[in-house]
Amino acid sequence: MESIGSLEEVILMILIKKDKSHGVDIINEYESALGKRISLPAVHVVLKRLIKKGWVKSEFGEPTSERGGRRKRLYWASSNGYEVVKELQEAKMKLWNSIAKPSYQYVGV
């Protein structure tokens, strides 16, 4: 299986959540979800990589006037991509659950 970077993972999750979306949607979602800035080309580079790995698919959308008459490219996650994220998250959750958390509840007999 091909490895997945953490930015790739986040963007893939965004695409799973949002279905068909273009670069601007992804940036907005990213910045509102994580509260961090991200540059446009960084997102595009990652999208290209995800397409190459077969986890994301794309097609051209309609041109709009706020884009200066340019077409959008719409991205969505493939079922492969969904599987990859799902497995990864489950593994992470398992790992996280196995870490002892500070607790004030005393459980015992």
Binding site: H22, G23, V24, I27, L40, H44, R67, R70, K72
Partner: peptide, 8 residues
Amino acid sequence: EVLGDMEE
């Protein structure tokens, strides 16, 4: 695509 996104 990139220029479109930039303008938007």
